[in-house]
């Protein structure tokens, strides 16, 4: 868990979430999450019927990968809120970098929390996820 006396507004944490995203990882996510939408795993359907250039990752895979960065930073069981917008699609071959920035340290329901701004970008520096999170911290 983050410690109040070791953090300040403006602090950032970044991590590479995935390099050269493989179709197989998207298949792994489909199997684990139960979302078998062929748009994510079925190249033939996705290109020939749905009209996309290739399969693409579940938004929730990007949110999950970003969540890994987030919990590595704030600690296990510390998250109170985590919300995102999916701003661009994530394609096989993408390399994603996640970043959390401390925007506020405050009190909520009698405990100290930190508000974070979240952004995950691809190899072209385009945001694929933007969002916010709130986590409990140690005083």
């Amino acid at each position: 868990m983050l410690k109040e006396n070791e953090i300040k507004v403006g602090d950032t944490h970044t991590a590479v979430l995935v390099e050269d995203l493989k179709r197989t990882q998207i298949v792994q996510y489909a199997g684990a999450s139960g979302d078998y939408n062929p748009l994510h795993t079925d190249e033939i359907f996705t290109t020939q019927v749905a009209g996309y250039p290739s399969v693409f990752a579940h938004g929730m895979l990007s949110m999950g990968l970003t969540g890994t960065m987030l919990t590595d930073y704030v600690g296990d069981g510390a998250l109170k809120k985590y919300g995102v917008r999916f701003t661009n699609q994530v394609w096989p071959g993408d390399t994603l970098t996640g970043k959390a920035t401390i925007i506020e340290i405050r009190e909520e329901d009698g405990s100290k929390v930190v508000d974070l701004m979240i952004e995950t970008t691809n190899q072209n520096d385009i945001a694929v996820i933007t969002g916010t999170a709130t986590a409990t911290i140690e005083t």
Binding site: D35, G59, K80, Y82, F86
Partner: peptide
């Protein structure tokens, strides 16, 4: 669909509030 995801087309946003682990 569950959680309001791809079953409604594409997934635009997702928000979680955690009350207990």
């Amino acid at each position: 669909g569950s959680g309001g995801g791809a079953a409604m087309g594409l997934h635009a946003e997702q928000h979680f509030e955690y009350h207990k682990p």
